[in-house]
Design a binder for these strands. Sequence first.
DNA 1: ACCTGAACACCGTTCAAGT
DNA 2: ACCTGAACACCGTTCAAGT
Lengths: 228, 228
Amino acid sequence: MAKNPAGRPARAPRRTSGLSRDLIIRTAIGILDEGGESALTIRALTIRLSTGYGALYHHVADRNDLLTGATDEIITGVLSGTATDTDPRAALRALALGLFDAVEAHPWVGRELSREPWRPALLDFYEAVGRLLDALAVPEDALFDAAGTFMSFVLGAGAQSAANASHLAAATTDRDTFLGATAGRWSGLDPSKYPFVRATVTRLRAHDDREQFLAGVDIFLRGVAGDA
Amino acid sequence: MAKNPAGRPARAPRRTSGLSRDLIIRTAIGILDEGGESALTIRALTIRLSTGYGALYHHVADRNDLLTGATDEIITGVLSGTATDTDPRAALRALALGLFDAVEAHPWVGRELSREPWRPALLDFYEAVGRLLDALAVPEDALFDAAGTFMSFVLGAGAQSAANASHLAAATTDRDTFLGATAGRWSGLDPSKYPFVRATVTRLRAHDDREQFLAGVDIFLRGVAGDA
DNA sequence: ACCTGAACACCGTTCAAGT
DNA sequence: ACCTGAACACCGTTCAAGT
């Protein structure tokens, strides 16, 4: 149905409801969630929104704007859903876990944040972390290093977990098969050269990214403010 | 000089020295270092190697193979240059700093590692970390979480620092101007809403990524095995 | 076996033209 | 003001043809 028989170019029905940056970003998030970063093409967006290229470019600057806008939207959602007025340790755990879960749910966010860190939405996150560490009585001259370290760890763990999630999605197999294959590959390594990796294998099947992440948060908290 | 006047297609002089996967990867690293991931096009590679498309595809599978191969090469270099037979704490610091410096020197490596974690070369890194943590008398049931956390932090901090480095390269300005602009932007934030971010501003100009990274490593070491 | 380069099927983005 | 879609300048990859 690309052309009509009369030779006049076919014309898609004009949208009745107006386009908006918000609608475009939300649609982009849908495409990103389904197919990852590479699935977000301008063409795919025009089709899903049944509109033209120019219409999109009227509301967003370019594809990059689309990606940062989508990322901001996700991060903002994390913060608005997390209470920070409880015990500082609990609040830091909740904040970290909120970002971690968001990145697991939207694996493309992790890579986006490593491309464009210090987006406005992440600034709110950093601010909250800083205040909570201050409330934990972290000495002032250690506060900035501690906050930066916390951000690096949370984003790093999120990105890594997201990468696993992406590979999981790419492999059409389920999680156990994927981990099993990894374990199998690692088992094939020379035991004398890779004793630790091989010891990890026996744990891998029961491995829970989220639990390991929380264990990491606790290591950080102990390191930064004595025993958690 | 696309065509010669006689209408016969111009033909580039045939390479005298043979192509090899190794030469291709090394050339790719050069392009990546100069222009980042987007600069690595197959066309750019053929030009720099004065060869054709098919020649490249004869030695590497595709662009992805090029990227992972280049990343492996860098990571392998880090490990071969780091001694791990000293005091475990010192060795962990050296190992972490080696990866951090490599990512700073080759910013594209950080994003690549977040796309393809657990490359063989990183396995060696993980193995070394696990053994060193064991040598630090980290209890066995905490060893795997600790090693994973360490990896996440090192990769996360590296990626973040690399993102800064990329922006620094994109902005043709120097580091002080860039940090000054960021500080200026942050200073404009509502002081009652962002007290911590604003307090960070005064530190930002004197900020040293490498020092903050080492401070983070020490937080981790304290958290994982008592006072460092 | 190794290499060449035209050709193909995509991209993001622009812009004259429509309402 | 908002939208359409042909056109442009790129991509990565393939493959018949050369040596």
